[in-house]
Computed example of a mutant assay.
Amino acid sequence: MVNLPKRGRGAVTAQLSTRFALPAREEDGDWLDMAETLDGPAPKLRTTVTEEAARSILSRNNSPDIPFDRSINAYRGCEHGCIYCYARPTHAYLDLSPGLDFESKLFAKPEAAKLLRKTLARKGYTPAPIAMGTNTDPYQPIESQYRLTRQILELCLETGHPVTITTKSDRILQDTDLLAALAARKLTAVAISVTSLDPALSRKLEPRAASPAKRLAAVRQLSAAGVPVWVNVSPIIPAITEEWIERILEAAAEHGAQGASWIMLRLPHEVAPLFREWLEVHFPDRAEKVMHLVQSMRGGKDNSSDFFTRMKPQGVWADLVRARFNKARARVGLNNQGPELDCSQFVAPDRHGQLALF
């Protein structure tokens, strides 16, 4: 029986993790063939949101591969459904599928801003840019309901704390007022991820994310508001999206972006089999070629998780992409480094929500 993609979803199945010895759930193939005849069509897969009583909100890391040491993720899971998302394996910790569960069974942390306030108020806290959008998108659809990202930005503006955002949603424009105010004080920078300029391809890769045209429109509007915007050509997928590199950079410059960066496709843990399954459904003619190129950049494996190498693909094909990107970026006049944000304006809040008095 061939699995067919579900409309509006990235993953093909609710593939479970085997990393934590969790009990597997299997359905009999003959029964699946009979189920629709006996019971009618399966119910539409709907998104659910569970509110999580988190104990903390600021995550720390000491990775040498990423340019920040702290981040916030006010949501778990992401309805955008990007098949390549390296955050998918986090749902395995919840005994949920990194496949369809990741994009349909979401978690929100309503106390995110209050928890951050407590953290910023701690004696000895030293400010450094907080990264948002490093795991799941802070502007996925449920942000319109919960407004957790906006609450965090309001707190950053109140306390003079620098913050960066990575997103592939034009929903970020709802917070242009806050982002412009933060940018005027050199407290923020935004990265908009663009994988291709083909809306049909984007619907397959990232079915509930904004179209490429809407993302570029967000770049233009944020830039016009004084917000420093970068375009992140991420991920670059060999033989799928790499043909768009130059055209994305040209469009980024035309829409007012200040700089651009790129990340090669990464397939940690459960993402690799989910991506292989997606390839067989959507690009069976080149699935083998894509995985051969991926492995050629990762030491013969689907993924490399080692520090210093996981974000730096190796090999001839990787070198070619790197040279193409650097040449095109220089040609259109985009920067290769983001702006330095100002950490000197930070004033710690007190626990009651008012700025400390001096």
Rank of each mutant, 00 (worst) to 15 (best):
E103F: 13
A54S: 07
Q140L: 12
Y125L: 15
L279Q: 00
A181M: 06
C156E: 03
D170P: 07
T18K: 15
L201I: 12
A224G: 04
G315S: 13
D137I: 09
G8R: 02
T241P: 02
A217F: 05
A189M: 11
I172H: 00
V316R: 15
G8N: 10
Y84Q: 11
L4N: 09
S63R: 11
A213M: 05
L153E: 04
I263E: 07
I152T: 11
I72E: 01
F358A: 06
A260F: 11
V316L: 08
A213T: 11
V233L: 11
P235N: 12
L187D: 01
A183C: 06
A108E: 06
T48S: 04
L320V: 13
V281S: 00
I83C: 01
E254L: 15
E288K: 04
L355H: 08
E52L: 11
K289D: 06
P138N: 04
D302I: 13
L116P: 02
A218R: 01
S202E: 13
N3Q: 15
H282K: 14
P313W: 03
R122K: 15
V227I: 08
R150E: 11
L205Y: 06
A217G: 01
N3A: 12
L148W: 06
S344R: 09
A131W: 12
L265F: 03
M34L: 15
L173P: 00
G99F: 08
Q174G: 04
R310G: 02
A87I: 09
P212I: 14
Q295K: 12
L148T: 04
R185H: 11
V219E: 01
P207S: 09
V233C: 04
N336V: 13
L148C: 09
G315L: 10
E340Q: 15
E103C: 03
V321S: 02
K114V: 13
K114A: 12
T90G: 01
E340G: 13
N326F: 08
R329D: 00
I165G: 05
R19Y: 15
A183I: 01
L265T: 06
A14T: 04
V227S: 02
R322P: 02
S223I: 09
P313Q: 08
